[in-house]
């Protein structure tokens, strides 16, 4: 588990940031993205896959959450 930050990128999409390793990447898909349930499996531009325990959609971004690496490069 690691702290990650999800923020809105300039192009309107979401971006992923892993401070401990300074990994910054685009989020290509997020499993849940409704007001009630947000998070789940997220896929990154570099092919990495992380899992965020679903929570109600955050009021605003960026947000720091705990995430688990499921697959792919780090």
């Amino acid at each position: 588990m690691a702290n990650i930050m999800v923020r809105k990128s300039a192009d309107g999409g979401l971006s992923f940031y892993l401070p401990k390793r300074d990994i910054e990447d685009s989020i290509t898909s997020i499993e849940f993205d409704t007001p009630e349930k947000w998070g789940g499996e997220i896929r990154l531009g570099n092919g990495g896959v992380y899992f965020i325990d679903p929570i109600p959609a955050p009021a605003r971004l960026p947000i720091s959450v705990r995430a688990r690496r499921v697959d792919g490069v780090e």
């Binding site: 930050m5 923020r7 940031y17 401070p19 605003r60 960026p62 947000i63 720091s64």
Partner: peptide, 12 residues
């Protein structure tokens, strides 16, 4: 960038 990201999250 670290402190900028922090202020973005905490203070919008």
């Amino acid at each position: 960038n670290y402190i900028a990201r922090h202020m973005e999250e905490k203070y919008a």
